[in-house]
């Protein structure tokens, strides 16, 4: 064999693949699908009111010069119930929250608000999930930080836990 180094190539390839396997085991997998809309403007939409007594929601309602949170929720979604106290805490901290209810019925939204309180200024009803699709949102619940000019600044996927509240307050205040 005049080129003994060539014998090492298969070993190097196997070691590389083995290394990848160990890397895959060591680094936890991120199953979340993040929106690619961060840094872009809200898409244009006008949703009807999700239930009586709470105003409807359009993109111009959100982009009124004041940064706020946009919560994507549904009355049929369990983690949405779990995050209700955190939304109340955010509201108590002076943050305005608008919401989009996904595939929901007016009476179910009303019952949800009656049971868990209403921290929302406006709730739009996205019964066909078409606005959710335009937002690059992948499920419920999700919470977006929206700048005063309607720019999507941040996406929080999953329910808001107590430890996320200060971070969200800071992000909204930083956008003021």
């Amino acid at each position: 064999m005049n080129r003994p180094w060539i014998l090492w190539i298969p070993l190097a390839v196997v070691a590389f693949i083995g290394g990848l396997a160990f890397y895959g085991l060591a680094v936890p997998k991120d199953d979340q699908v993040h929106s690619a809309m961060i840094g872009k403007k809200l898409p244009a939409f006008a949703l009807p009111a999700a239930t009586a007594g709470v105003p409807a929601l359009s993109n111009t309602d959100i982009a009124d010069g004041k940064p706020r949170l946009l919560n994507i929720f549904a009355s049929w979604c369990l983690p949405c119930k779990a995050e209700a106290p955190q939304l109340e805490a955010l509201k108590a901290a002076g943050i305005e929250i608008d919401a989009i209810a996904i595939r929901d019925k007016p009476e179910d939204v009303a019952a949800f608000l009656a049971e868990f309180g209403n921290p929302f200024r406006r709730i739009g009803s996205d019964s066909e999930m078409l606005v959710q699709l335009k937002l690059g949102s992948s499920g419920v619940p999700e919470t977006y930080v929206i700048g005063g000019d309607g720019t999507i600044l941040f996406q929080h996927i999953g329910d808001i836990r107590a430890e996320h509240v200060p971070m969200l307050i800071e992000k909204v205040n930083a956008a003021r």
Binding site: W76, I102, R103, D108, S127, E128
Partner: peptide, 13 residues
């Protein structure tokens, strides 16, 4: 059980 009703009840487009 929940998986069946967990998608909500909106109309399909």
């Amino acid at each position: 059980s929940t998986p069946v009703i967990a998608q909500g009840s909106g109309p399909m487009p």
